[in-house]
Design a protein around this nucleic acid. Structure first.
Lengths: 350, 350
DNA sequence: CTAGAATATGGGAACGTTCCCATATCCGTC
DNA sequence: GACGGATATGGGAACGTTCCCATATTCTAG
């Protein structure tokens, strides 16, 4: 708690100048082996630890990547962060995380905090960030938006093809024989928009009429929307949810209303988080390559500014994972085991 | 990306000295209203953003709290972080998170990163940290260990009374009529030790013989251990797991082996994460006040160093949440609705 | 009208590094 | 036996703030 030792203290003890100590810390080859050893011993002896603030100020680099995530309760983001860390660590960067808590104000404050720190790069995995904030951030450092498709020149982004993903969900259901398929819409955000429009296109293509309800990306949101469906009396044979959490909420509401999943209503989620795979939940869902999303976001970030500063868009293919929350509708035709295999789902990743 | 504006640029534009700009940024009352306004306008106009490194260096404060968490995939930590953020925000601190990924090396690197940043406080929520590292950290800044009981003078900590918690699990099961109760032990760490010893004491008190298997705090760990139990032929009527994830893994293994939960085997988890409450899982578990744990850790942190620098230990009471993964054993006596209510569980929170 | 407080502003050192340039020493080479 | 080039080390400015002290201005009271 007292004053911490500095490079000068180390230098004095080792009997060299501060320059030499600095070189040793930074692994410069311009130090004789004997001197290096003496410096390291002195540093260890007095418990020297570099002051990041001073280094950052003098060198104008931090070797820190900031990650702003929308909601740490959604396991989706934990997976993505794993991918980011994989790549960052490999390149000698550290990753610091700030949580937005599904709140625009908090998210933008987190962005601001990282910009004040002058991080070397910023991954934004929060759908709540306004274009204006993104623009300000991009003016200050390298930025990549993850899990969230950006318009061609608004900046770089790495996302799953959500239009295609929602289409896969609908195709799976029509392949099982469903024709009355409702959609729960996520809170306003680019992924919610894409998933919705993928649903609408697929429904149109199949000659079916869309039914859309407002929800959000939480369990509670899914519960409320499905409750409304159950109450309405006009119950569809299948429901697509905007993510796994909402799907789980929807299933709970349906069952609370005395309906059985999948016998009465099939439910499809989105993300393929660990939750969906839990044996007792066993949710049919659209898989996103979550860790890969994080990896590619970090790679794009570290590549940026070294050559092409043109914003780039990466779209990864989703694929459907069929589990037991979906089945053929009552009185409908039996399930076909391979409903409408499409080129896109065939080339998707593990 | 070009050079970012500094306090001097703002000063020049506003026609004042850097000192005045500094005062405006720091909300000092020693500035006339007119000047303040001029400075703010100039700052906004050129897009000035304070350089955190320079501020930290000059002021020797960061207003940042670091949080090192063991595993971002465990929703337990997300809840705890919410509590930390609540308190930090209230006091004008920002919280940055680094994940240890259940790996000592990574966790200790995260601690080091925060110490280099000279954070104003550090919350360690990772059981993987060595006493030696804790000691080094405590020499440099205020530190509170969370979700993890510390010996009286090793430092401050906020945790749940895990000895009591494991006892509650055993009492619940004996109250249902179980007498053959196995324990899955978590990866070596203080919480694992406490929970184990709570189990042992309660078993002894009930005159029962302990059966202990090695597992860890993951779903896979719980699966493997329960699989071993199922194979052994000598199957207990109940299993206590070291946390919810492991409990879920154990249930999967039992069911894969053709056993029914709770008809054949009852399973109790630990933590009461959101997972346990999912309708389809409905895990009987020991509740930890997760958010409260985070809150009190942050409060202890911010209180520390202002007066008493004596390390303090806070122990919060757990309580049991009975759901449907436990029942009376086959052929045993029926469940009593209020098995052995104890003073500790009666005074537990929410 | 003037001393002395209160208010507002400016200037400079300091924070702990990096990085450039200068210098010292030691080589081998012609 | 001086010289050019490595190799190793030292010194000082700079990074962008804060914070203390000095100074200028305004106000108040006697």
């Amino acid at each position: 708690m007292t004053r911490q030792p500095t490079i000068l203290d180390v230098a004095a003890l080792a009997g060299v100048s501060k320059s030499v100590v600095s070189r040793v810390i930074n692994d410069s080859p311009l130090v004789s082996p004997a001197t290096r050893k003496a410096v390291l011993m002195a540093a260890a002896q007095i418990g020297y630890r570099p002051n990041a603030a001073a280094r950052h100020l003098a060198s104008n680099r931090t070797r820190i990547l900031g990650a702003v995530v929308d909601d740490l309760h959604n396991p989706f983001f934990a997976d993505m962060l794993d991918g980011i860390e994989d790549v960052a660590r490999e390149h000698g960067y550290r990753v610091m995380v700030m949580a937005g808590g599904r709140n625009t104000r908090n998210e933008e404050d987190a962005v601001e905090a990282f910009l004040e720190l002058r991080v070397d790069g910023l991954v934004l995995a929060g759908p709540q960030i306004r274009p204006q904030t993104l623009k300000r951030a991009r003016a200050a450092t390298r930025v990549v938006v993850a899990a969230h498709r950006l318009r061609s020149n608004a900046g770089s982004s790495v996302a799953t093809d959500d239009i295609r993903g929602a289409g896969l969900a609908v195709e799976h259901l029509t392949g099982l024989g469903h024709s009355r398929i409702a959609y729960l819409r996520g809170a306003p955000s680019p992924p919610a928009r894409d998933r919705l429009s993928g649903y609408q296109r697929a429904m149109k293509k199949a000659g079916l009429v869309p039914v859309i309800l407002e929800a959000d990306f939480t369990e509670d949101g899914g519960y409320a929307a499905a409750q409304e469906i159950a109450r309405s009396g006009d119950i569809p044979t299948a429901i697509c949810a905007p993510n796994d959490l909402a799907a789980i909420g929807a299933i709970n509401a349906l069952e609370d209303a005395g309906l059985s999943v999948p016998a009465d209503v099939s439910v499809v989620g989105y993300d393929d988080t660990a939750l969906a795979g839990l044996r007792h939940i066993s949710l049919t869902t659209v898989h996103q390559p979550r860790r890969e999303l994080g990896k590619q976001a970090a790679e794009l970030l570290l590549a940026e500014g070294e050559g092409s500063s043109q914003p780039r868009q990466v779209l990864l293919p989703p694929h459907l994972v069929a589990r037991t929350s979906t089945a053929a509708p009552r009185g409908g035709q039996g399930p076909s085991l391979h409903p409408l295999p499409s080129p896109a789902s065939a080339r998707s990743m593990s």
